[in-house]
Amino acid sequence: MVEYVPILIFLGVATLFPVATLVIARLLRPSVYNKTKLEAYECGVPPSGEARARYPVRFYIIAVLFVVFDVETIFLFPWAVKFKALGVFGFIEMLVFLGILLVGFAYAWKKGALEWV
């Protein structure tokens, strides 16, 4: 547990710094507001509509694929550190695991889920 004390200190500093900055800024800055100042800052055209517009469902496929391969990579870590001890059996085991996921990857590729346009 003692080895996590630096992380705790880091967390404390990381939390205090923005809070302190915002508090000091609030005390120092003049607070004069007008319509233009409260508008969303955007370069070029004036902003229109809400920020929470609906997005195409394609983003969801990308997110799911990201999570799936994220989990796959995480399974590789404990396997890699025990690679020698697990031997050939462990290697085949991981090949089966990756093979099953490769089926999904091939399916995604074939269905054109990875193509954007």
């Binding site: 469902v57 694929l65 999570v67 085991e93 099953i100 999904g104 399916y107």
Partner: peptide, 19 residues
């Protein structure tokens, strides 16, 4: 562990089929 890969496969194919 191997079943987990099937679960991930189902999630992946399910998302593609739905979307």
């Amino acid at each position: 562990f191997e079943i987990a890969s099937l679960l991930l496969l189902v999630a992946m194919i399910g998302a593609i089929v739905l979307a």
